[in-house]
Design a protein around this nucleic acid. Structure first.
Lengths: 254, 254
DNA sequence: CGTAGCTTTGAAGATTTTCAACCTTAGTGG
DNA sequence: CCACTAAGGTTGAAAATCTTCAAAGCTACG
């Protein structure tokens, strides 16, 4: 990190803490004046209540959204009417990236709890990116990260047993909470068993049974929405599907 | 489409046909001189033979790759050693988008048949994008499209029966061939039952049985790698999981 | 022509889903 | 303050689906 960036870092952090743009600006020091320009286009809205929609599938796409606090699920409907959850979005995570493609939201987004959101007008973000190469680079990285994450998820769904999926899901939540400064081993699920099942391709009963079994095996302590991870080692050991990418990130020398 | 773009279209098509950049430049008219600049950074390599690796997981990322002819699979290894297919890439499709994130390839890519590839040095593409706003926009769309596609795939894997997955897979191939000017109803699979199964999260025997059943039901004609779709209607009817996004794209008024 | 690598097919076994009942909790209104 | 209700969660048993194991067939290639 260069001298210049050290100077700007505090300001960036403040701006990011405020507007939850860490996904965009934390990974790489933008110049302070650029952060100000980015900050200037961010809209802050009143918080969403549980059940409120942030956007619906088919609506025109104008903004990217960043979760500030709370949690959001994204989902589609199947032809036979039920809901298919395609993602959960925690603080610091970005929504709407799939809609850049054709200017229409491909899924709906709904708050799982009281949730604060920032809006980024995408056109203005594009303009800014043209003028700030490091912001453009951040945008590419942001989109690429999503692709990378999706590929891991597909590999998980494509291969795994119910046990492995649930273990993987818990580890993913744990890591995401940790990254945002929350406890990695003690947290509340804002989504129902139904929603977890839909996301993981399992019946809600299967999710419930696995939570019970993990608890019997002294790996977790689960009480409704409250989860405590007792034995992270064994939870990780259940996941045979660490990808090459994850291996290399964990230990780049191999 | 503006007058200016009409003029440039032929040239673009020629350039794209040559370098397989249609993913980047066909969806939106770049100015002719911009296409030339894009064309100038494209490298053309000797073709890959079946089994050759294009890149391996963990290798540093320098280029995006566009399939010109042939077919490529991307895959990761699981901890217990077997291969997990995460994607198939047909002519006109782009590989490596997941690696922008951290500069390392997250999966390996291997030719399924004799395959011609274009290389796009990513750094130079970023430079160009900074200077050509419409190219930047294309890049965002390209990445977004991949995210959109992955979300559909996740929804498919998360929900469906074996029947639905195989039907969906065939429809996807059919549409991709069609888009590139090949027959939508008569094509050759360049991948094995094993690889299809890995991709769809099914045992290879399950894939084989479903091909047989679809044939018995007069929906397909399958002879090893050669597939003919006899009854596209019924094939489509098997897929309950048309997403909102797909519905809206098919019929934007609803 | 023989062998290796797919592919197909059958049967048994395992996992997961479905259906049904019951339990728990949080919120509501008497 | 308590009872009631609705929503979500748990548990059991039966049924469906998919996988695994095993064997045999086919094709392409050397």
């Amino acid at each position: 990190m260069t001298e210049r960036n050290v100077i700007s870092l505090d300001k960036i952090k403040v701006a990011c803490r405020d507007c939850s743009l860490s996904a965009l600006c934390l990974p790489m020091g933008l110049r302070p004046e650029d952060v100000d320009r980015l900050d200037a286009i961010v809209k802050r809205n009143r918080p969403l209540q549980r059940g409120d929609n942030l956007f619906r599938a088919g609506e025109p796409f104008r903004h990217l959204f960043v979760v500030k606090t709370g949690a959001v699920k994204t989902f589609t409907q199947t032809n036979d009417g039920d809901e298919q959850v395609v993602g959960f979005h925690l603080p610091g995570e970005v929504l709407g990236l799939d809609a850049i493609q054709d200017g229409l939201h491909g899924c709906s987004a709904r708050a799982l709890e009281t949730t604060a959101i920032c809006e980024l007008p995408f056109e203005r973000l594009e303009d800014l990116s043209s003028n700030i190469p490091s912001l453009q680079h951040q945008m590419f990285r942001l989109l690429s990260k999503e692709i990378s994450h999706d590929a891991e998820m597909m590999a998980l769904l494509g291969r795994s047993t119910a046990e492995e999926r649930v273990a993987s899901f818990l580890i993913s939540l744990s890591e995401r909470f940790k990254r945002r400064g929350f406890s990695a081993t003690d947290f509340f699920l804002s989504m129902s068993r139904q929603e977890i099942g839909s996301y993981l391709g399992l019946a809600l009963e299967t999710v419930s049974r696995l939570f019970t079994r993990f608890q019997d095996d002294k790996i977790l302590k689960v009480e409704r929405k409250h989860v405590q991870i007792i034995d992270m080692e064994r939870l990780r050991a259940m996941v045979t599907h660490q990808t090459d990418a994850e291996r290399h990130r964990a230990n780049p020398s191999t």
